[in-house]
């Protein structure tokens, strides 16, 4: 059994407006996604802004209650769990946020921040909690005297280490990392990525790793899912996906990555237009619609659930964008 199984996840937001504040439209932030995550594995999730990556992340840890679908973690469907049951499940699943400056309480010392998970879960005595917090700091490479200091006294990279330490506190089995390095400088980014890899081996952590930087995702992931406008269009082992993308959107995305190698500059086939809005998205394959593909019409009304085209390699089987 997988550690985490997400089935047909949907998250719709009503868009209200007008004098009476009526629902005018529906924003389909996530529209019927399914995937699974094994113990100790990293699943990368990529896509452009507004494609629903963060909504998926928040639904997985039940910071959002999805409109439909199920999220099964170790056999428990957390979309149906009661608050009490959820609290004990949250020991197993934690989150690291993009901006550590905003996700750490500025009025709490680092010690308080790191002890809070234990306080919430009613674990240990005051003395034990202090020791555990110090141990966590050591584990993420910060000095112990940081315990009495406040988040603003640290650099961005150090703050992200504090955020990671907090996520580790309850010895979770899954950590959802939502853009964990995108606010960091290049030289610090590598340090934090290395730390995440080390911790994964040491604690057999599973990561759901979200980033918009495709090189970073490729470096961190075992498998990668590509999202476009609320839907996963391709899901495959990382090496396979990057070497042999089979959905037109994945190809376009990979083609747009700048390469840090000036002797290998290439002519890019540029994608035209912007990411469309998830409010009233087009029917059928949204990317085919953006590309004005002649065969887009054929995808309307089709079953667009992912289909396995080679071992472990799943794509949305639309006639316009998929290499079947």
């Amino acid at each position: 059994m997988s550690l985490l199984t997400v089935q047909n996840l949907k998250m719709y937001y009503p868009v209200r407006g007008g004098v009476l504040h009526r629902t005018k439209a529906v924003c389909k932030a996530v529209d019927g996604d399914s995937f699974a995550l094994e113990e100790g594995e990293t699943l990368g999730l990529v896509g452009e802004s507004g494609c629903g990556k963060s909504t998926v992340a928040k639904s997985v840890v039940r910071l959002l209650k999805p409109t439909a679908g199920s999220v099964v973690f170790e056999g428990h469907d957390i979309t149906r769990s009661r608050p009490g049951a959820l609290r004990s499940l949250r020991r197993q699943m934690q989150m690291v946020f993009q901006d550590p400056a905003e996700s750490l309480n500025p009025r709490h010392t680092v010690g308080q921040i790191l002890e809070e998970p234990f306080v919430i879960q009613k674990l240990g005595t005051r003395g034990e909690r202090g020791e555990w917090a110090a141990e966590l700091l050591r584990r993420v490479g910060l000095p112990e005297d940081a315990l009495g200091r406040y988040p603003f006294e640290f650099s961005g990279g150090q703050r992200q280490r504090i955020g990671i330490a907090r996520a580790l506190a309850l010895k979770p089995r899954l950590i959802v990392c939502d853009e964990p390095v995108s606010a960091l400088d290049v030289s610090v980014q590598a340090q934090v990525l290395n730390l995440l890899l080390e911790l994964q081996t040491d604690f057999k952590l599973a990561y759901l790793f979200i980033a918009h930087d495709l090189s970073v995702v490729q470096h961190m992931s075992d498998r990668v899912a590509v999202m476009y406008l609320g839907k996963i269009v391709e899901l495959a082992p990382a090496a396979d996906l990057y070497r042999n993308p089979r959905h037109a959107y994945t190809k376009a995305l990979l083609d747009a990555i700048p390469q840090a190698n000036p002797s290998r500059r290439h002519e890019r086939k540029l994608l035209k237009g912007d990411v469309p809005s998830p409010i009233n998205p087009p029917e059928g394959c949204a990317f085919g619609h953006r590309m004005r593909h002649p065969r887009w019409k054929d995808s309307v009304g089709m079953d667009l659930n992912l289909r396995e085209v080679s071992p472990g390699h799943w794509i949305q089987p639309c006639p316009c964008c998929a290499d079947l």
């Binding site: 290049v186 030289s187 890899l197 930087d213 090189s215 490729q218 961190m220 992931s221 990555i257």
Partner: peptide
């Protein structure tokens, strides 16, 4: 220190 597409993944 840049992660590159031609590097082996999941290595330091």
């Amino acid at each position: 220190c840049l992660p590159r597409l031609d590097h082996p993944p999941k290595t330091m």
